[in-house]
């Protein structure tokens, strides 16, 4: 748990961080976001004392951070920045082992931990262990950076725009991986970004900063449906609000029971799924835009949904393939239920 109490940073007369108070609960993924110069990075760096605060207090795990020597504090808090932060003269394994070495772990324990992390980040099957940072791709280097931050198994992880320097495709993969690692490890993460989509995707709570002040600290969906003021509304972007909200929601939240049939007979419901003996959907009866309700459309794997898929993606598929419903499939391709065009509106928030 991290608690900021009236945290302030002054440089001369300028207050770059002005009286910020917020609490990041255990296991929370808190994203600090705001325009350039809003003080989000400074706030992050005050948590591990890379920057000393002028006023206020920071508590990590209930302890005032000024009661510990800065080096001891930092070894207990993971810290990841852009990939250039890797030590260029150390191999991948040595980079990951940075903090355990500082903590003087026995070498067998360090080696085991490095292997564990390489496996967690799916870096183990590429012979990366002995490579130098300049031999890695951007995405690999970034994974090594996050692995290094996690090496000594800290409760808290600070990340300063860690994915700022990678291409959009790689960033997408890295975000998915970070979300997975967060679910698996339950770490408390504080993450700085200026990318709202990244924030909405990863955060369990978003702290929106402007000119050194905390404007709103809320769950991502709340930020979208109940912005505190015009600044928040502007920063999120007035366009695409509905789609942004849907990008936060998953298909399973909208999934409802599907009407099934084993033959071509039209059932009473307007949309009916024809399934095979294994409950796999074969065809959609009705539910096709601009065609009679009796139309039979063969199910195409490109317009199916999974429970983890975002509603934005599901909606996109409905629009693209001109169907008013998608079958929701489990891992074996069996019909779990359906999401429908009209159901998109009917989410109980």
């Amino acid at each position: 748990m991290i608690e900021l109490q009236g945290l302030t940073k002054r440089y001369g007369e300028t207050r770059v961080v002005d009286d910020i108070s917020l609490t990041v609960e255990q296991g929370e993924f808190c994203v600090l976001i705001g325009p350039s110069g809003c003080g989000k990075s400074t706030t992050l760096k005050m948590i591990n004392r890379l920057i000393s605060h002028s006023e206020g207090k920071v508590l990590v795990g209930g302890e005032d951070i000024t009661t510990l020597p800065p080096e001891r504090l930092r070894r207990r808090i993971g810290y990841a920045i852009q990939s250039i932060g890797l030590f260029p003269h150390w191999r991948v394994a040595d980079n990951i082992a940075t903090v355990p070495k500082l903590l003087k772990w026995p070498s067998s324990r360090i080696a085991a931990r490095v292997e564990e992390l390489l496996a967690l980040f799916q870096l183990d099957d590429e012979g990366l262990h002995d490579k130098y940072p300049h031999q890695l791709s951007g995405g690999q280097a970034q994974r090594v950076g996050v692995a290094r931050a996690l090496a000594a198994d800290p409760d808290v992880l600070l990340m300063d725009e860690p994915f700022g320097a990678v291409d959009p495709l790689t960033r997408d993969t890295l975000q998915a991986e970070l979300a997975r690692v967060h679910r698996q490890t339950g770490k408390t993460i504080v993450f700085v970004t200026h990318d709202m989509d990244e924030a909405l995707r990863l955060a369990s709570r978003v702290a929106l900063l402007n000119a050194g002040q905390l404007v709103q600290y809320d769950r991502p969906a709340e930020l979208l449906v109940a912005p505190a003021n015009d600044f928040v509304r502007d920063f999120i972007g007035r366009a695409d609000l509905g789609l942004k909200l849907l990008s936060r929601r998953r298909v399973e939240e909208y999934c409802r029971p599907a009407q099934r049939t084993r033959n071509n007979a039209i059932a009473s419901a307007p949309i009916t799924w024809q399934v095979d003996a294994n409950d796999r959907p074969m065809a959609l009866l009705g539910g096709r835009l601009g065609e009679p309700e009796t139309a039979r459309t063969v199910v195409n794997p490109e317009w199916t949904a999974t429970p983890e898929m975002s509603m934005k993606e599901a909606l996109s598929r409905m629009v693209w393939f001109r169907v008013t419903a998608l079958p929701v499939l489990d891992g074996e391709g069996r019909l779990l239920g359906e999401v429908t065009m009209s159901g998109v509106m009917g989410h109980r928030s």
Partner: peptide, 13 residues
């Protein structure tokens, strides 16, 4: 690079 130094400090050296 300054980022390398920051990473070193941030990792508790």
């Amino acid at each position: 690079p300054s980022q390398t130094l920051e990473a070193a400090r941030g990792n508790g050296m």
